[in-house]
Amino acid sequence: MASIVQRGGSYSVVYYTKENGIRKQKWESFRTEKDALHRKYMVEQYQEMFYAYSRLTRAAEQHSF
């Protein structure tokens, strides 16, 4: 899940990711709210696909013969 934070005259997209197994908070700045909303959507779509793939992979590993 990602959030949009207005900072001064810009907008930041804030989300969490894992790097080398460590949870990190990421901030990405944009000049317009429209650009920030687009990036937020892209981040959430990527996270949703990644976590769905992870769940499917774990389920397949548990049920493999």
Rank of each mutant, 00 (worst) to 15 (best):
Q25E: 14
K26F: 01
F30H: 14
Y51S: 09
S10Y: 10
K40L: 03
Y46T: 10
F65S: 08
N20E: 11
S54E: 14
Q6C: 05
K26R: 15
Y51C: 02
N20H: 06
A60S: 10
R23H: 03
K26Y: 01
G21P: 01
F50V: 09
I4A: 07
L37A: 13
Q47I: 04
W27N: 11
K24E: 05
M49Q: 14
T32V: 06
S3C: 04
Y41M: 09
S29C: 11
T17S: 11
K40C: 07
E33K: 15
Q47F: 00
S64T: 12
F30Q: 04
Y16A: 04
A2D: 02
M49C: 06
T32W: 02
R58K: 15
E44F: 04
E28C: 09
R31A: 14
Q47H: 10
R23Y: 06
K40P: 00
T57L: 13
A59K: 12
K34S: 14
N20M: 07
K34D: 07
E48F: 12
M1T: 03
T57K: 15
M49G: 07
T57S: 13
G21L: 03
Q25V: 10
T17R: 09
E19W: 03
G21Y: 01
R23A: 10
F50H: 13
R39L: 11
I4S: 07
Q6W: 00
G8C: 01
Q62L: 15
S3Q: 11
M42I: 08
F50S: 12
E61Q: 14
E44D: 13
K24D: 00
E61R: 14
T17I: 07
L56F: 06
H38C: 06
V43A: 04
A52M: 10
R7L: 05
Y11L: 08
H38A: 13
Q6F: 00
T57G: 02
S10E: 08
S3H: 09
R39M: 12
F65T: 05
K40S: 05
K34M: 09
R39D: 03
M49N: 13
A2N: 02
Y11K: 06
T17H: 05
Y41H: 13
E44M: 11
S3E: 09
G8S: 01
E33W: 07
Q45T: 08
M49H: 08
N20L: 08
Q47M: 08
